[in-house]
Design a protein around this nucleic acid. Structure first.
Lengths: 349, 349
DNA sequence: TTGTACGCGTTATCAG
DNA sequence: CTGATAACGCGTACAA
């Protein structure tokens, strides 16, 4: 019985050292894979670790070394395939590097983001991945004060806090609308849900192009701050049809969920896609390629964004020089059956 | 300059104490919301915390108190809506309680699970949520040795390690097949991907019922260890049609992704659903209710499982008495357009 | 290559 | 109600 403290007398480095007949620091060096420990000693120590079932206490390690092996990740939503794939990319790189991910779902709220940020900073993360650029002032101050590698992901930012990996939602939306125009759609509507900053940027891209062509009509724009879903897509489409009196030949949806909802709604309303109504989504989730007709969409490097962000953090932690702290992962408009095919099948960025 | 150590001279409890002219422990008590601190002192301390932008160091706290405020969560896949909703339930309870979630994706591998478990245990979690019951022996030993509240989720287990929240996949599959039989389907196939333990249990439920009715034909069973996806559903359906020579009037799919793939494949092959082919999925994801025709499926309490599991852990941590450490969250077969409607619209568990 | 002494920031304990 | 002191388990710095 070592003490009356709460922690059950867990096996410690010292226990292993005693068992192996070496000093604690030697065990530490074995655990942390340091060079320069005799094979003989190493073997003895490893045997003792096995025998005692030793698991290093990260809190103690962290406290002593200021190295937590934790990366904080803040995303707006857990229940969104888009972020799941970004996360997969992050975990794929973090895991093998021996890093843990501390994940927070901010529910698209800068205030929740700020709260989560505080909590995460309490764990002394060595790096931070956060979504987008609309942090609260307090959060921004916090981030400025901590001196960690920070990557803002999902969108290209004009003034990143530190590093940035993403693409321009504005340009992507413009490309979509230009594609639709090239397919001879003229009365193009916009459907948006949630309307987070990136959705707003898409809306702006949509407006920009139609404005240029003298084809913008705000009666063809329907948005809601409510969460996005397939069902919501159907609802919004019905609103849109009402609002513009059916004077519509295509719909650009803020994301694929909404677009799928529109597709199904069209089937129910016996509107032929892509003839009477062209439909284009955003994100190019797997379903887009599988549904009938195929859903035109915008392919973005979700997995890649997570992967790159994580790699950039590690590069910084290892003192490597980055080519550039800003990475544009681009996008690609993918033409499928839900929009009329034109002369070219795919428009590259 | 306090030291030459790596950690940038972060604001500590001692700094706050000095600033407020009190002792460190008083600051600690304020931070941890202890009763019995004068309002005057509390106010002074809180002001200092604000002024200095103090963020408590959880590693130190953890080390000193053996309380990490961390819950470890091990799930087989991040990129699966099913687990996302379970996670949402977990976060929803954990966050407000001031707990962090340490998440690991085991990629359906018991070995990866064991590895992640070790890593997570290094962070001294106060509780653990793990998926299913097929842990490695080493993992089981580890879990037995740590004395934490542990909840195994997603399925009902015969011999849980500690607590258990889930439902019987075997019974759910039986209910599906019985429903299909009551709709006068007789040549019912099974499509499965990934074939993790729960998928296997569904397959067994399917076999059990058809066996009883003398209708089991293994040529109508197609499975693959590969990951599940909508596209895979189409592929497997084509294999199935080949394997049974088209002698098939319904398909029970291991999950909704596969089922959606079958639905789309049927559209492409001009097979009418539900007349020529009935289709039933599993999990009842949102898309099931939205697709045309609606996909019959099995509704399970995903969000609820996460929520309950988390609450049970907190109950244990607070020394509350649990009604039962085993919770069956049940299931419900949902009848939609992809299967012929019978006399009753829904079969309850 | 291995070991010793000390400190990381916080909380438990017990005294005032 | 408040404070002094000693851990918590490990890694850094330096010595051997």
């Amino acid at each position: 019985m070592k003490s009356g403290r709460r922690g059950a007398n867990r096996v410690t480095l010292a226990d292993v050292a005693r068992h192996a007949g070496v000093s604690a620091i030697t065990v530490s060096r074995v655990v942390n894979q340091f060079e320069g420990v005799t094979d003989a000693l190493r073997a003895k120590v490893e045997a003792s670790i096995q025998a005692l079932g030793y698991i290093p206490n990260r809190s103690a390690s962290n406290l002593a070394s200021s190295r937590s092996r934790v990366i904080g990740v803040l995303i707006p939503s857990l229940s969104n395939v888009v972020f799941n794939e970004v996360l997969s990319g992050i975990y794929k790189v973090a895991g093998p590097a021996g890093y843990q991910v501390l994940l927070a779902d901010t529910h698209y709220s800068p205030l929740e983001e700020e709260r989560s940020l505080r909590t995460i900073l309490g764990q002394n993360p060595e790096g931070l991945i956060i979504t987008g650029g609309d942090q609260t002032d307090a959060a921004r101050q916090l981030l400025a004060s901590v001196d960690l590698p920070i990557v803002q992901i999902m969108e290209r930012l004009d003034t990143p806090l530190d590093m940035n990996v993403g693409f321009s939602h504005f340009e992507a939306a413009k490309a979509v609308v230009e594609t639709l125009l090239s397919r001879h759609y003229r009365r193009i509507g916009f459907l948006g849900a949630r309307m987070d900053p990136r959705s707003c940027q898409r809306l702006e891209g949509y407006r920009e192009v139609l404005q240029q062509h003298g084809l913008l009509d705000e009666r063809r724009v329907v948005t809601t701050p409510q969460p996005s879903s397939v069902g919501r897509g159907g609802e919004l489409f019905r609103s849109l049809m009402g609002q513009c009196g059916g004077d519509l030949d295509a719909v650009f949806c803020c994301n694929d969920d909404l677009a799928l909802g529109v597709l199904f709604a069209c089937q129910k309303m016996h509107l032929s896609v892509p003839e009477q109504i062209g439909v284009c989504g955003f994100n190019d989730i797997e379903m887009a390629a599988q549904v009938m007709p195929g859903l035109s969409s915008v392919q973005v490097g979700r997995y890649e964004m997570g992967e790159r962000a994580m790699k950039m953090i590690f590069a910084r932690l290892n003192g490597e020089l980055l080519e550039s702290p800003y990475v544009d992962t681009g996008f690609k408009v993918v033409q499928r059956g839900s929009t009329r095919s034109g002369s070219t099948a795919t428009l590259e960025e």
